[in-house]
Computed example of a mutant assay.
Amino acid sequence: MTPASGPAVATSLPIGSDADLAWVRHQVRQFAAELGFGLVQQTKLVTAASELARNTLVHGGGGHAQITPLHNGLKRGLQLAFIDTGPGIRDIELAMTDGYTTRGGLGLGLGGAKRLVDEFALDTEPGQGTAVTVVAWVTGAPATRPGLG
């Protein structure tokens, strides 16, 4: 897996407000559409991004998202990383359990996001923050954004 060649290797977006969450969703959808993701794939990826960005804001106290177009042979994809310097996650297994919530939500964020993407990695250290990285792939689609191919 390598970042796509060209000048737009990674885009970093701040996550510090609800407006930032909307901008992250918009950018993820735009990148996904331009890479050739179908509408259902776009919706899954934007949903995962929305959940992870909200976790970054609500539980991590804010941070940033990094959007990186990928290619691996004929495969094209999108890597999304959500990084904060918040309190970290004490019990990863519990946090990944459907229905578990610390803030009164539905408790589907981390586990739900994992099910919506092809690859999922979580790196956290109590007191140091959390980084969640996800990857979704689409095959054989031409890139339309300059620098993605």
Results as ranks from 00 to 15, higher is better:
F82P: 02
L80S: 03
I83D: 15
V40M: 13
V46N: 00
T56P: 12
L80Q: 05
Q42L: 02
I92R: 06
P87Y: 12
D91P: 13
D84H: 08
L80G: 05
A48K: 10
E34L: 14
G38C: 03
T68M: 15
I92F: 04
L45P: 00
T85V: 12
L57T: 07
F37S: 09
E34V: 14
A48Y: 07
D84A: 06
G38E: 06
L80H: 04
Q66Y: 07
F82W: 00
G60F: 02
Q79L: 12
F82Y: 04
I89H: 04
Q79K: 09
L78Q: 01
G61H: 12
G38V: 04
F82H: 10
V40D: 07
T43L: 03
G88H: 01
A65C: 11
R76T: 15
A33P: 05
I83F: 14
L57P: 10
H64M: 08
G60V: 06
H59Y: 14
A65N: 08
G77N: 03
P69W: 07
L35T: 09
T56K: 05
F82M: 05
R76P: 04
A33K: 10
T47V: 06
L78C: 05
Q42C: 00
Q41G: 13
V58S: 07
I92E: 14
A49E: 01
P69A: 09
P87D: 03
A95M: 03
L78M: 00
A49V: 06
T43R: 13
Q42W: 02
T56Y: 10
V58R: 11
H71C: 15
V40Y: 09
A48R: 06
A49M: 09
V58H: 08
G38P: 05
I92A: 12
P87V: 06
S50V: 03
Q79G: 08
G62Y: 03
F82N: 06
V58T: 09
N72D: 15
N55G: 03
D84S: 05
K44L: 15
S50A: 15
H64T: 03
I83G: 10
A81Q: 08
S50N: 14
A48C: 00
F37E: 02
